[in-house]
Amino acid sequence: MQHLTALLPRVTLKQALIVGGATTPLLAGGAGVLAILLYLMAAGGTATPAPEQPIAFDHSVHAGDAAIPCEFCHRGVGSQAAATVPSVEQCMFCHSVVKTDSPQIQLLQAHWDTNTPVNWARVHRVPDHVRFVHAPHIQAGVACETCHGDVASMEEVKQVRSLAMGDCQGCHRENSASLDCATCHK
C-alpha cells in the first residue's frame, strides 16, 4: 500500500483531470449497463399508475360508500383462478334504476343496448408464465386489501404492490406457503 501511495504525489492536477476524463465515460458506461441489468432484473411487475378505463367506475363509491363486498361483483374469486369482472347484466341489475341519468351509466346502458362487452383496462396482471389462482388465497384468509390495497378508498383503481416474484415470495415465506417454483410458474 505504501508503495502505491508513494506514487500519488506525482500526479499533477492536469493528470488527475485526464485520468478523470478518461475514466468517467468508462465508469458511467459501466454503471449504465449495471443499471439496465438491475432494471431488467427488477422489472416485470412494478407498480403502475391507474390506467384509463372505458367507464369511470368508482370503487370508492361501490366498495367504500355503499360497502358492497368485493365478492358480490368479483364472483370467481373464491372458487377459481380469475376474480372475474361482473357482466354488464349484473351492473344493470342496479343501474337500470340507480343513477340512470349519469353520463357514465349511460355509457354502460349503451353497452347493454348494443350487446357489446366492456373492455376494461386490466390493472393487475401477472406475466404469462405465472399461474395465479385466487381461490386458495381467499381460502387461506388473505384479505383482498393485502394485494390490491385499499380499493374501497380508490376512485381509480391502481396497482399498489409490485407483484414481482420477490413480492409474492416474501408473502409466501412469511406464511409458510409453498415456495416451489412450480406452484406459480407454469
Binding site: P86, S87, V118, N119
Partner: peptide
C-alpha cells in the same frame, strides 16, 4: 362474437353471463 380481447391489457365484461360460465373457467 367479438374479436378476441387484447389479453395482456384488457379484461372483458360480457353483457350476458350464463350462470355456469365465468371467464377463464
Amino acid at each position: 362474437a367479438c374479436a378476441a380481447p387484447e389479453r395482456e391489457s384488457q379484461v372483458q365484461s360480457f353483457v350476458l353471463q350464463p350462470e355456469l360460465s365465468l371467464p377463464g373457467q
